[in-house]
């Protein structure tokens, strides 16, 4: 079971349909079980029963989740696969003590793969949908996996299956989420 975390300004917000529901539907089409919780309501039972976690994105103007870093500390000891999408990547990096830097990209961007990893295997460059004001500063425990000509677009923890992507894979790059689910499936008991 994958735990989807909703990072939008509040539970049941208008942004949920845009940033969370498309990922829920994609997992449904892939036959992957999931449960969704708002980031303020993630509890020990969901964390314990999750084989993997996807942190969904939120609206450009929405930065409320960055003001509550304590609500993401559980990611430090989760150790199972995590995929942070856009704002979710920022929340993941923030949990590891990293900040952001201004980098606005809105629309399609060319993404180049920088380092070998199962998530991007066989891909050298692809076009991806971006909606962000900032990029993450890559935390010390992470490596950059992909970049646009403006900023780092994907990171992975050096020893754990923790990923962050700045682009929105649910738009035109569903294969990224499908591969992540495959990695998560291989790691579950």
């Amino acid at each position: 079971m994958i735990l989807l975390v909703d990072l939008c300004c509040r539970d049941g917000s208008l942004s949920r349909d845009e940033f969370v529901a498309p990922v829920e539907r994609l997992l449904g089409r892939l036959g992957v079980m999931s449960v969704t919780r708002h980031y303020t309501a993630v509890g020990a039972p969901e964390i314990e029963s999750a084989d993997a976690v996807i942190l969904c994105g939120t609206a450009l103007m929405d930065t409320g989740y960055l003001e509550r870093p304590e609500l993401f500390r559980w990611l430090l000891s989760f150790e199972r696969p995590v995929l942070g999408i856009s704002s979710g990547m920022m929340a993941l990096a923030a949990a590891f003590g990293s900040g952001t830097e201004p980098c606005r990209e809105i629309g399609m961007a060319d993404v180049r793969v920088l380092a070998p990893d199962p998530l991007f295997a066989g891909q050298e460059e692809f076009s991806a949908y971006t909606v962000h004001d900032c990029a993450v500063q890559v935390p010390g425990e992470f490596v950059a996996l992909a970049a646009s000509d403006r900023c780092v677009q994907a990171i992975r923890h050096r020893s754990l299956p923790l990923y962050g992507v700045l682009f929105h894979p649910e738009v035109r790059n569903e294969w990224v989420i499908e591969r992540f689910c495959g990695l998560a499936g291989r790691q579950s008991p």
């Binding site: 208008l14 942004s15 349909d17 845009e18 529901a21 498309p22 539907r25 609206a59 450009l60 103007m61 929405d62 606005r104 809105i106 629309g107 399609m108 949908y129 909606v131 004001d133 649910e170 738009v171 035109r172």
Partner: peptide, 26 residues
């Protein structure tokens, strides 16, 4: 993506939130 990105850009420049509740709808 063309339309959505253009509206997102104008909204961001004006400091307005942008909502697309039908985005990628089934």
């Amino acid at each position: 993506v063309y339309q959505a990105a253009r509206v997102q850009r104008v909204c961001r420049e004006l400091g307005l939130w942008c909502f697309n509740p039908l985005w990628l709808a089934d």
